Amino acid sequence: METFKETLRKIWYILYPFLFYYAVMLIIMTIAQWAFGGDATHYVFCQLIATVFTIPSMLPFYRQGQALAGIAKQPFGISRERICHALFAAGIMACFGISLNNLISMTKLTAISMGYQQANTDFYGSTIGMEILCLAVFTPILEELVFRGILFGRLKDMLSKPFAVGISALIFAAVHVNIVQFIYALILGVVLALLMDRAGNVYASMIGHMTANFIAVVRTETHWLDFSVRGDAVSWIFSLVVLGAGIVLMWRYLSDRKKQEDKEKE
């Protein structure tokens, strides 16, 4: 039977990279806001600085986890297999991102959640170029490195895959600290963990996360999908069809792996 001390060691092994990430982000963000200003106009710029400087500090944790799991460091480059994973990830996350944004927006949650409204003010108070660079490029890289590459990877080494997916998604959702983003991040956290598990590396989930965030930024700044959140029949049908497309794509993507595993057993 596993000792209490061994259990604590495992919990610490899983959590300390996340706590380190949070501390580094908080310190750099505080310094950046002190230097450049903490108002909505400068928030995304300060977030970008904190994100860029935090990424290198998380790479050793990711590589340590990969090494302990016996996964060799993969060379950087483009291959047909990686392109296939990237396209599936982008398509799946585009569908889930659009449909979930729509469905949640057509409820009363966005109106009653002060935290969500404040987050919108902070994240969409800059230029669209700065928002894309921060929210759709560097933030997905860092968050996928931390929540899927490190947290999910370590959980999967100790728990069954369903528990690892669920716990990593729950922690990912909890850091968003408002009910609207919690629900959105919880569902997408499950999808992103499955994307990483299917691809065998963190790059696919990074591409998927970038896609969802890019669409979120562009739709907020250009209003090009406003027709789909009016709450009428067309909005609901459109959103449910897009959600269905995401589910079908996800099923197809995951079933391809099962077929491959069945062939290897023969």
Rank of each mutant, 00 (worst) to 15 (best):
I132Q: 07
I132P: 11
I132N: 06
L133A: 15
C134N: 15
C134H: 12
A136G: 12
F138T: 10
F138Q: 12
P140Q: 11
P140H: 14
E143D: 12
E143K: 11
L145I: 15
L145M: 14
V146L: 10
V146R: 03
R148Y: 02
I150V: 09
L151G: 03
L151W: 07
L151F: 04
R154S: 05
D157N: 11
S160C: 15
V165P: 00
V165D: 01
S168C: 01
L170E: 07
A173Y: 01
V175L: 07
V175S: 01
H176R: 06
H176M: 03
V177R: 14
N178S: 07
I179E: 05
I179M: 12
Q181I: 00
F182G: 02
I183G: 02
I183N: 06
I183C: 13
Y184V: 00
A185E: 01
A185P: 14
A185D: 05
A185W: 02
L186D: 05
I187S: 04
V191M: 01
A193S: 14
L194Q: 10
L195T: 09
D197Q: 04
D197S: 06
D197M: 08
R198S: 11
R198M: 04
A199C: 06
G200A: 08
V202F: 08
V202G: 07
Y203Q: 13
S205R: 09
S205F: 00
S205G: 14
S205C: 09
M206V: 15
G208F: 03
G208D: 07
H209D: 05
M210L: 02
T211D: 08
A212P: 00
I215F: 04
V217M: 06
V217Q: 01
V217W: 07
V218N: 13
V218F: 03
T220S: 09
T220H: 15
T222L: 13
T222D: 07
W224D: 11
W224K: 08
W224M: 14
D226A: 11
F227I: 07
R230S: 10
R230Q: 13
S235H: 11
W236S: 14
W236I: 15
I237F: 09
V241G: 14
G244D: 13
